[in-house]
Design a protein around this nucleic acid. Sequence first.
DNA 1: CGAGAGAGGTTTGAGGCTAA
DNA 2: TTAGCCTCAAACCTCTCTCG
Length: 324
Amino acid sequence: MYELSLCASCSVWQISQTCDPKGARVELYQIRYFLAVSRTLNFTRAAEDCNVSQPALTRAIQKLEQELGAPLFRREGRRTHLTDLGRAMLPPLQQSLEAAEQAKEQAENYGRGDVAPLRIGLSESVPLELLLPLIRELTKAYPGMQLELSRGTGSSVMAQLEEGEVELALAAMDGSIWSRIDAWPLFSEDMRLCLAVNGPLALQSSVTASDLSDAVFVTRRHCESSEAIVDALRRMNVAMSEGYSADRESDFETLVSSGAGVGFAPQSIVKNAGATVVALPVEGLDIQRTVSLFAVAGRRYSPAAAGLVRLARSADWSVSVTPP
DNA sequence: CGAGAGAGGTTTGAGGCTAA
DNA sequence: TTAGCCTCAAACCTCTCTCG
């Protein structure tokens, strides 16, 4: 029984018999020549098919036979035909050549941009809607774009970026980040207090610290600014009585809109939330966050990733963030 | 960057087999 | 018997890769 495998270190197909752990080195050109001879049963015509001279093809077949330890063809004058080993080798070698050709085609598609994979890590606190106009533009430039989005906390998407699991990350990180990270600040936005549209404070134009004295808070555990919010409220002598917490924006919105509590969220989230939530500024509370695009410095981008960086840096983000 | 090694190629020719 | 076709080997060329 023969097994065929592609050696990861030297990119050469290896055939091994179950009892032979060493295996034989088989080059792709040898497979191509072998298949041509098995098709034509004539070395000269096979050489013509392969666009090489007949001695070159003969030598390649001999080398292949030497590697496998037995002849693949019986040379009987004008009656060249496959040996038992040759017949046994035909299906796996055919398969391996097809696999190699597929791999080559796939590589060419990547090179031409026909297939353009793009993996982005997106912080839970950054709404996908912000990226949609850029994605639409990118799809025009790269029709074969295969976008893969990965959600997580700010620190987890940065970890994915470091590990190479994503090419780009979008988050509101401003503290300690890896020194090899390139960061492009895209926009800054205020944090607003979110409350149910039919709640008691909803008709006010702003909220004061005293309005919050009895408030029950819904916290967004995934938010990069949550610590800054707690600190700022403490300075205003507002104790955050945490009633609920959510690690998804949709759960946060559901809890707030149901009247379970109030909570802080960035303007971009509020703008993209449903009409059941209103967002108000809190007098004396000035917390901003900056959403940035991150990439690993010196790491080569895919064409689609490079395109996204260009588009993101030249985009007018105020349109996406400013509430109507 | 140049020298050397190695691999794959070509050209040429010898020798064997087959069919007319 | 012989022309034609086939395989194979030797000599040499070219290209690529590695190493100092």
